[in-house]
Design a protein around this nucleic acid. Sequence first.
DNA 1: ACTCAGGGACGTCTAGGGACGTCTCATGTT
DNA 2: AACATGAGACGTCCCTAGACGTCCCTGAGT
Lengths: 153, 153
Amino acid sequence: MPKRWLTGWRVHGQIAERLRERITTGAYPAGAALPSEAVLSAEFRVARNTIRRALHALEVEGLIVTVPAKGRIVRTDGYVVDSAYRYQVIARDLRGRIERGDLAPGDALPSEAELCWLYDVSRNTARQAFTMLEREKLIVSRHGKGRFVRPQG
Amino acid sequence: MPKRWLTGWRVHGQIAERLRERITTGAYPAGAALPSEAVLSAEFRVARNTIRRALHALEVEGLIVTVPAKGRIVRTDGYVVDSAYRYQVIARDLRGRIERGDLAPGDALPSEAELCWLYDVSRNTARQAFTMLEREKLIVSRHGKGRFVRPQG
DNA sequence: ACTCAGGGACGTCTAGGGACGTCTCATGTT
DNA sequence: AACATGAGACGTCCCTAGACGTCCCTGAGT
């Protein structure tokens, strides 16, 4: 039985198999984040590219989902995993409150500081959420005063 | 003797006086950074704007220098204080090596990782230094290979 | 009336840390 | 010869923390 794991040919295939096991056995539970490429390449003592090939296979099989700048998540059976960035979550919430009329045209939105507190994010992230809504022309910003739901559609 | 320090009129004048003392007595030594506006306003239990008025006075008097995003520095007698950002320092060094011919046209520059190590900065800061030199058209970047001194001036 | 202080909101920048994405090239396996 | 791997470079984005800059407005002191 040739002990040639992790050498020469098809290393990425073998790593993919091991990762597949960890997912099916629940070592990497559904919805959880996988270790990063850097961590995995350190664990298997293998180049980052090799890890990426293995992960790519798992993604094609639909076992995991990749989110740039965030990481990889084990897919939940038949369900959409949360692959949203923090600022997108905040923007979505606010957008909902505006579209439901919960926040009427002219109303003041929560301030940056309030959003930081509410969502436990940095000011930059809160601002990024606002920036999205401003680009969508849903809100306007007034220097020194605050942000407001844009009057008349 | 009306004990009305820090109340009503001219609070910022009184704070300026106290800070002036700290500088002349060496509590804030020359070349050192002052506490931030937030810290000072907490210490004197005063609004940030009030602190800013006091600091503005000291700056006009030439006692301190303000560097946005960095802080305020006590001026050294007759000398220019180091008010440069980290990425500017790195860019200046590299620019010097290029202009001296130490790095000739076509030569490879240190990689981002090397710069991080050499200057103990984050990759973002190293990249910002490179970005400056690229804008100055002193260097060019080649994806996957590295950065090089621009051929023929 | 006028000025100042307080407090808060938004604007802009530096800096650090991390994840994935893409590309190049030398080396080794088959 | 063909392919995979290892190693490393640059590219882009997310997120956090913190500094100073600007503006608005209310209320208190004179």
